[in-house]
Write a protein that binds this DNA or RNA. Structure first.
Lengths: 151, 151
DNA sequence: GTGCTTGCAAAGGATTTGCACGCCC
DNA sequence: GGGCGTGCAAATCCTTTGCAAGCAC
């Protein structure tokens, strides 16, 4: 790995802890992927991360492997909006879902207590033992609505 | 197209109407794909349909194109459970979501009025103009629960 | 030192596309 | 008859895998 210094960012120990908590090694490429993801925040895909990190010597496979890892760790979540490639978003540790703007691709985390209750009730009514669920809401964010009105 | 007769099924005129309603032509391959989908009902993918229809001379591309078409028409919906390939399910014309059994792959349609209300409230609270949403609940169906207990 | 991680390149699988032919209306 | 729809095969896209070398602990 050439140019490794450029991949060392702040808050390293925090990232280290998170990785170790999950029983995996803290390596330069992993920190780089996590950092790149966090700088993007909402809505990015593997290719974007790879394009950014490739010059520093990070391989494509590592990006995919690390993204999977981060999803397992609960630091990222996959969005289901796009059909052809996985789209990721950084997210908090607690259970939640996403509101996605169809105009600007902004993503907002929502903790939908009301929806959770509805989901539980639906499963119960159908006699299902609840395992997991997926809720993604698409709409137009306030900023984009304003922009549309201004036109 | 050889062997076209074997692809003509009952309720043809009904299918014809649906296709024409959507402004597309009613063709033998399209009717065949729709019929194969309806006989499966819940949870199938493009490859399964292709395997069934290939001997009758239907091409892979046509299966994919037709499946897309049927989703556009609202006769099918894509499930988001699997990451590596699209899974489809037949569904009614009205807006609804799905309950998917993680054991037996059974799919139940749900018309989740309570969840809809929750979704609308969430969007409104965030200032979003609601566009669409996606709700998929995974769990264990009553039959599989019973089977598990019997073991 | 041990063995988890990595980069590379090649494999893989699902889906799409280009194009000439054929069928629907 | 005109043009949409089709089959075929190749192309493309995203993602995974095999493997030797490298790095973390």
């Amino acid at each position: 790995m050439k140019n490794a210094d450029s991949l060392n960012f702040g808050m390293q120990s925090e990232i280290d802890d998170k990785l170790r908590e999950h029983g995996v090694r803290s390596t330069v490429p992993r920190r780089a992927v996590l950092n790149a993801a966090q700088r993007r925040g909402a809505r990015f895909n593997a290719e974007e991360i790879y394009t950014e990190l490739r010059p520093a010597g990070v391989g494509r496979a590592t990006v995919f492997r690390t993204l999977d890892l981060l999803v397992d760790m609960g630091l990222l979540q996959r969005l289901h909006t796009d059909r052809h490639c996985s789209t990721y978003t950084v997210c908090g540790p607690d259970h939640h879902h996403h509101l996605v703007c169809v105009r600007c691709a902004d993503v907002v985390e929502i903790s939908a207590a009301a929806a959770e209750r509805a989901v539980r009730a639906i499963a119960r009514d159908a006699g299902y033992e609840l395992d997991s669920h997926l809720l993604e809401i698409r709409g137009i964010c306030p900023q984009c609505q304003a922009a549309a009105r201004a036109t």
